[in-house]
């Protein structure tokens, strides 16, 4: 485990994505990138300069982009369909349902700048509904890596996985949390810190905030377990049940609406398998105001200090329930 507080070097996970994509692209000529004019924002410039013919840019036409991705896969290619997560999922949700998930097309959907990465641009450009929209679709794993190492590992895994994938990436800088050489396993959470007072679960850009909150809690003698849960579907049932049974309370946080996302997926398991008090942090079912992603995460109670406070309150609620 790295010390995220004293090693503040931040990484844009898009760099890890394209670095692996270009490495795999050199080995496998079937890999193609598909985009909606988003060559720059998806950082596909390097891929384009190496293999201009293998960058399929359909222009600003997301429904067509996803359908074309399905057709390219039918023709034997391995398409990585890249676009801002808000448009990729929102604009083409029915294409994702029918052409990709239901048809079980071997297409990798790469949602760039997810969550509130485009915070200042307003709610049209926030992608805080995408977990909810995608995780109800059969056949479609939903994955939000927490750092550049997990991003690289998840891209490598996605390329070898025979079936559709939705990979939700950010552009907001995050510190590396997982060890170099980490292998991504679908549906497996990573234990980043052990403890028995409460479990903090997050993914994407929020995991490192959970680690900082856990450090604050430790200063007060509270040992929190921290799980990084990149896979929203299929959810890691074993890790959630163990967290509930062994720590008695679960606090989740995500760069997403509190409706239908990671916290909801965990709550579905908790309610059915091991009921314990829970709290879900995120955007509370509203359109977020203007501000940077970091500002908005703080605004919605996901600063390390606010997470630590929420954890203490939840532990108190759990204790009062027991007594």
């Amino acid at each position: 485990m790295k010390d995220v507080i004293s090693s503040p070097k931040l990484h844009d996970c898009r760099d890890a994505f394209v670095s692996v994509l270009e490495r795999l692209g050199a080995e496998n000529p079937k890999i193609v990138a598909v985009c909606n004019d988003s060559v720059g924002s998806s950082k596909l410039g390097g891929f384009k300069s190496k293999w201009p013919e293998r960058l399929v840019n359909v222009g600003i036409a997301e429904q067509n982009m996803v359908g074309v991705g399905a057709g390219l896969a039918n023709g034997g290619l391995l398409p990585f369909v890249c676009g801002a997560a808000c448009f990729l999922t929102g604009r083409s949700l029915e294409q994702i349902k029918a052409d990709i998930a239901y048809s079980n097309a071997n297409v990798k959907l790469i949602g760039i700048s997810s969550g509130m990465a485009y915070g200042e641009l307003g709610p049209t450009h926030h992608s805080i509904e995408d977990f909810a929209w995608t995780r109800v679709l059969p056949n479609l794993p939903v994955v939000a890596p927490c750092d550049s190492i997990e991003t690289a590992a998840a891209v490598e895994w996605a390329a070898s996985y025979d079936g559709p994938v939705f990979l939700r990436l950010s552009r907001v800088g995050v510190p590396d949390l997982l060890p170099a050489g980490h292998k991504f396993e679908l549906g497996k959470a990573n234990l980043l810190r052990d403890g028995d007072a409460i479990t903090l679960i997050a993914n994407g850009t929020v995991t490192h905030r959970m680690m900082k909150a856990a450090a604050l809690l430790a200063e007060q003698g509270i040992e929190a377990r921290v799980l990084n849960m990149a896979t929203v579907r299929p959810i890691d049932v074993d890790a959630v049940v163990a967290a509930a049974r062994e720590t008695g309370a679960i606090l989740t946080a995500e760069e997403h609406s509190t409706f239908g996302g990671l916290g909801s997926a965990i709550a579905e398991v908790v309610v059915a398998e091991a009921p314990v008090p829970m709290k879900i942090l995120g955007v509370p079912g509203i359109f977020a105001p203007t501000g940077s992603a970091e500002f908005l995460l703080d605004e919605f109670g996901m600063s390390p200090a606010a997470i630590a406070e929420a954890a203490i309150a939840l532990i108190a609620r759990t204790s009062s329930r027991i007594s």
């Binding site: 067509n64 074309v68 399905a70 057709g71 390219l72 039918n74 023709g75 294409q95 029918a98 239901y102």
Partner: peptide
């Protein structure tokens, strides 16, 4: 070749097949 039903889906997928 691909699941259809909602209208306006087949042609984009066919474009992908031809492009492939």
């Amino acid at each position: 070749e691909t699941n259809t039903g909602p209208l306006g889906h087949g042609l984009p997928v066919a474009v992908g097949m031809a492009k492939a």
